[in-house]
């Protein structure tokens, strides 16, 4: 989250613009290096379960996270390490959740990308695709009841998950209630191994927006500038009563579905097309062209980031694993109504 983002300052002076781009680039790089580290830990057998990366989607994801304000709501999905960081999630929350630390927000009860802090507006995704959007709607509806105006909810999703009933129900519901929802579709061409031609038959998902009665923008998801402008505009429109907004970003997943997946099904033509452009490299080149970040500054930034991540990993690795004997084993808040294994019940 930034103090000044595109949605609040329509005419930015040069310094403010530079600060936003530098800040955005820092989150993109932080996410990329963090993803690389998580991949290395996974290969070393240090992470239980899956690891899902956002390589290639950092520009889009950052643009969403950075354009939200404190008090807004964010429902990221599996490829949103960058957006989460930009929204305010700590590196430590991510690392601890991947390592299963009891000190992380999920306390070893859930892992990897299934993390968040609902009370701070960061929703912990459940795996079931499409299911988080209506939860964002509910938070926004509650705020309407509570007469809290001016906040926005953003939810991210892949093009594959637009085929779910939950996606349809929730977008339609947001439109009916005219909620300040910004729904961001990362059309990264594949859902696991399935090409998008097997998900939908229209030429662009943007075509769906008028059917729901919501606004839409299509962007090049590899271009930080376009993403920042689109996210800023959509969030601003939603914030000022324009109703739900859709963003469709075209890009390519520059990794496997998860780290277990070599993704040999990806068409090489796509990798060599403009969709396959690496948004982090492109952003770095953009900053260099603008003389906002030279090579040595970029190297220094990377070094700082590596340090920050190594420190978080070292800390999480020193932490104890969750203890099944100390675990409460209670799934409901009403302690007096808890059933289950009496020997595990806390007295």
């Amino acid at each position: 989250m930034l103090q000044t983002a595109f949605d609040t300052e329509p005419s930015l002076d040069a310094k403010e613009e530079r600060d936003i781009y530098l800040s955005a680039f820092r989150f993109m790089l932080l996410a990329r290096v963090l993803d690389d580290k998580l991949a290395a830990l996974y290969r070393a057998g240090k992470i239980h379960g899956g690891v899902f990366l956002g390589r290639g989607q950092e520009a889009l994801s950052t643009a969403v996270g950075i354009s939200l304000r404190e008090g807004d709501v964010f429902a990221p999905l599996i490829r949103d390490a960058a957006g989460r960081l930009a929204f305010g999630e700590s590196v430590l929350d991510s690392v601890r959740t991947h390592m299963g630390s009891p000190h992380g927000p999920m306390r070893g009860r859930d892992g990897n990308v299934h993390r968040g802090r609902p009370r701070e507006g960061l929703l912990p995704m459940i795996s079931h695709l499409g299911a988080m959007i209506s939860v964002v709607n509910g938070i926004l509806l509650a705020r309407r009841f509570q007469k809290k105006s001016g906040t926005v909810g953003a939810a991210c999703i892949g093009e594959g998950a637009t085929s779910t009933g939950a996606f349809h129900e929730a977008l339609n519901q947001a439109a009916v209630e005219k909620l300040p929802l910004v729904l961001v579709i990362a059309d990264n061409q594949y859902a696991y191994s399935t090409p998008k031609s097997r998900q939908f038959a229209c030429d662009s998902l943007a075509r769906k927006a008028p059917g729901y009665g919501v606004g839409v923008q299509t962007v090049d998801g590899t271009d930080l500038s376009e993403c920042l402008k689109a996210a800023g505009a959509a969030i601003s429109r939603a914030r000022t009563g324009g109703g739900p907004q859709l963003i469709v970003a075209n890009l390519l997943r520059l990794c496997g579905h998860g780290e277990h997946d070599v993704a040999d099904y990806v068409d090489p033509k796509l990798m060599n097309s403009s969709l396959g452009r690496d948004c982090v490299k492109a952003a770095e080149e953009f900053l260099a062209r603008r003389h906002w970040l030279d090579a040595s500054q970029a190297a220094g930034l990377r070094e700082d980031i590596v340090h920050e991540i190594e420190a978080a990993v070292a800390q999480a690795q020193r932490e104890p694993a969750p203890d099944p004997f100390a675990e409460e084993w209670r799934a409901i808040a009403s302690e007096h109504l808890c059933e289950g294994q009496p020997e595990h019940r806390r007295i």
């Binding site: 609902p118 009370r119 929703l123 299911a131 988080m132 959007i133 209506s134 939860v135 964002v136 709607n137 509910g138 938070i139 926004l140 509806l141 509650a142 009841f145 009933g165 939950a166 129900e169 929730a170 339609n172 519901q173």
Partner: peptide
């Protein structure tokens, strides 16, 4: 689906 999702969000 969205009815219950909405309720969960409001409850949060």
């Amino acid at each position: 689906d969205a009815m219950v999702g909405m309720a969960v969000g409001a409850a949060i």
